[in-house]
Amino acid sequence: MSTQPRGWQQEADRLANVSIERGDPTGWFEQLYAAGESGEVTMAWDRSQAQPLLAQWTRAADLDGTGHRAVVVGCGLGADAEHLATLGFTTTAFDLSPTAIRTASSRNPDSTVDYRVANLFGLPEEWRSSFDLVVETYTVQALPRDLRERAVSAVSELVAPGGTLVAIQAVRTSDDDGSGPPWPLTRDEIASFARWGLREIALEEHRDADGSARWRAEFTR
């Protein structure tokens, strides 16, 4: 008799805590995706459509990416990257997890997206200030808070002169006990992208259907 895979969120908590305790705060991402691939748990962050706040933003802007470059930070299984590619962007998408990148590529065999295995804290120098649109969804909040400033800086450095960053993160509530993942952001923390050569255009708090709150922030260089 087959058994159903366990939910990935609980496994994420366990793997993250073990990984952080041994001094490897990002090693759990690959372990979690690999567990999803094997069927041990459900696949993490598994969605076929772009994050709703990102899709809403691109529709409102009537965005045409033709002739422009975009990058998706911590792209996971590729839904946001594929969305940007349909808008005409020459799209790069990277993730720390080889399993995530392999899965994204296999799910989208005819994709124009350039999927890469890459570490946010060691990106190719040629990517610096090179993208007209940078999308960062949930990556910063998935990292322990002592890495936050470093992560925000690394994301910001991808934005080209005149380019745009869209960042979507969970809102930190007053009852947050500091445990994670995720580690949601305060308003000051989501606004801190502006400390790295960017200018804040918009910063909004949105409520999901289940009542959970998300930041969507837009910055330009």
Rank of each mutant, 00 (worst) to 15 (best):
residue 221 R to C: 09
residue 212 S to T: 15
residue 91 T to E: 00
residue 169 Q to G: 04
residue 156 S to D: 07
residue 61 A to Q: 15
residue 188 D to E: 15
residue 173 T to A: 13
residue 11 E to A: 10
residue 91 T to Q: 03
residue 147 L to A: 01
residue 156 S to G: 15
residue 112 T to H: 05
residue 186 T to Q: 06
residue 55 A to R: 09
residue 106 S to V: 11
residue 213 A to S: 13
residue 38 S to L: 10
residue 185 L to P: 02
residue 28 W to C: 07
residue 46 D to Y: 01
residue 198 L to T: 01
residue 213 A to K: 15
residue 47 R to L: 07
residue 176 D to C: 14
residue 23 G to C: 07
residue 138 Y to L: 14
residue 3 T to G: 08
residue 89 F to W: 07
residue 208 D to G: 11
residue 58 T to P: 14
residue 206 H to W: 08
residue 15 L to H: 12
residue 182 P to D: 14
residue 83 H to Q: 12
residue 76 G to W: 05
residue 160 A to H: 10
residue 14 R to I: 11
residue 66 T to C: 12
residue 216 R to D: 06
residue 146 D to A: 00
residue 185 L to K: 02
residue 8 W to G: 11
residue 16 A to R: 08
residue 31 Q to Y: 01
residue 220 T to G: 10
residue 186 T to D: 08
residue 26 T to F: 02
residue 149 E to R: 01
residue 10 Q to H: 10
residue 202 A to Q: 14
residue 69 R to H: 09
residue 84 L to N: 00
residue 184 P to F: 14
residue 216 R to F: 09
residue 128 R to W: 02
residue 63 L to M: 15
residue 163 G to R: 10
residue 25 P to S: 00
residue 156 S to P: 07
residue 65 G to V: 08
residue 178 G to D: 03
residue 55 A to L: 06
residue 15 L to V: 07
residue 175 D to A: 15
residue 12 A to L: 14
residue 80 D to A: 09
residue 184 P to Q: 13
residue 27 G to H: 03
residue 122 G to Q: 09
residue 105 S to E: 08
residue 145 R to K: 12
residue 152 V to A: 00
residue 104 A to L: 08
residue 182 P to R: 03
residue 199 R to C: 05
residue 205 E to D: 01
residue 125 E to I: 14
residue 111 S to G: 02
residue 99 T to P: 07
residue 185 L to Q: 11
residue 47 R to W: 03
residue 12 A to I: 07
residue 120 L to W: 10
residue 190 I to C: 12
residue 47 R to C: 04
residue 41 V to Q: 01
residue 202 A to F: 11
residue 164 T to W: 12
residue 33 Y to N: 03
residue 69 R to F: 00
residue 112 T to Y: 00
residue 220 T to S: 15
residue 33 Y to S: 14
residue 40 E to Y: 03
residue 40 E to D: 10
residue 185 L to W: 12
residue 63 L to F: 10
residue 34 A to Q: 15
residue 192 S to P: 13
residue 121 F to H: 13
residue 43 M to Y: 08
residue 83 H to F: 07
residue 163 G to P: 09
residue 18 V to Y: 00
residue 149 E to S: 02
residue 19 S to L: 02
residue 168 I to N: 13
residue 121 F to V: 02
residue 217 A to D: 08
residue 98 P to F: 05
residue 12 A to G: 11
residue 82 E to P: 04
residue 192 S to E: 12
residue 142 A to D: 11
residue 119 N to T: 06
residue 125 E to P: 04
residue 73 V to D: 10
residue 101 I to H: 05
residue 155 V to P: 01
residue 144 P to F: 02
residue 99 T to A: 05
residue 153 S to A: 06
residue 59 R to K: 11
residue 160 A to E: 03
residue 62 D to P: 03
residue 78 G to R: 07
residue 2 S to K: 15
residue 91 T to W: 02
residue 120 L to F: 08
residue 116 R to C: 02
residue 211 G to D: 11
residue 194 A to M: 05
